[in-house]
Design a protein around this nucleic acid. Structure first.
Lengths: 159, 159
DNA sequence: CGACATTAGTTGACGCGTCAAGCATTTTGT
DNA sequence: ACAAAATGCTTGACGCGTCAACTAATGTCG
């Protein structure tokens, strides 16, 4: 079951070979995601905004004028999280977001993009597009399609 | 360039289609990595150890009796980090790790696995194997191989 | 040898994930 | 209508990543 020495192994300075192709695949996924995450963070840094905050901005734009309740934002992120409140606190402090207690259901707090938030987001759009497009240098569209399908298969069988 | 509605889109409750296959691929990678990360964390939880700590245990086992300097551990993780010190603080507190200032080069601090750390790690090995193997339910070995190759191509073109 | 840079590690501050506990505000069941 | 459960959100505590500033030890070079 031992596999030949791979590039990922060198990247991690590992001495022992992977015990299975599945182990290598899972590490490869984690490593690649990490590269992406950090790449995005680095490029957003000058704008003093984190990847999570950027994602929230996009979701709020999608919600439009009706707004969206706090926790519903979490469901649309990669990860649903009770940390939403504090994340929004910071964004409200920076005037990127506005929050109002909902009158229909007073448990909810509706969130909206501010003018400033919308402006920032608009200026970021083309830059983010460019980051994703960097992938095109290494992968043909067909290969990207295959990748998406394989990853989908993995997620389907989990949970 | 707009793409057909995909499963990932539903998962994220997105209204707009992905603007490119590359955008979908990058989100898919992040999402899948997140599923893995959380899956592993959940299964390690009963042992009161985090995925990062588990990785450090494995690296220390690899280093063996000679030990390994603090920051060298970081280089072998997915992510090199100045947070190593504090991570090791917590592990030392739990008696999983032992640290000694190196006499050859007094700047370095060599880290070792304790007996207890080694025992914990040994008992975890088969369980981790099982987690990776869950992937086999959704992917043939050939598909996993393809996946690894595609991800490698992406990482190659990034920096 | 002495100024200077480099290297290894530590520490502080802050963002974010995650769990658990707690508080209002509905909703549900009888 | 009233108690109990569910829902939406907030807060506290802690783990970890990340940047920047700092100390101590080692190297380098005139």
């Amino acid at each position: 079951m031992a596999r030949k020495t791979s590039r990922l192994q060198e990247e991690l300075k590992q001495t022992k070979p992977f015990s299975s192709i599945y182990q290598e695949a899972s590490l490869s996924i984690l490593k690649t995601a990490d590269v992406f995450r950090r790449d995005t963070a680095r490029f957003l840094e000058p704008y003093e905004i984190t990847p999570q905050q950027y994602n929230v901005l996009r979701i709020l734009r999608g919600a439009g004028a009706e707004g969206i309740p706090t926790l519903a934002i979490g469901e649309r992120l990669l990860e649903e999280t009770p940390g939403m409140t504090r994340l929004l606190d910071r964004m409200e402090f920076k005037s990127l977001v506005r929050r109002v207690r909902c009158e229909k259901d007073r448990r909810q707090v509706l969130c909206y993009l501010t003018e400033e938030g919308a402006r920032l987001l608009a200026s970021l759009d083309p830059l983010v597009e460019a980051v994703d497009q960097k992938m095109a240098a290494g992968l043909t569209p067909d290969e990207a399609e295959t990748l998406v399908e394989l990853l989908e298969k993995i997620r389907e069988t989990r949970q």
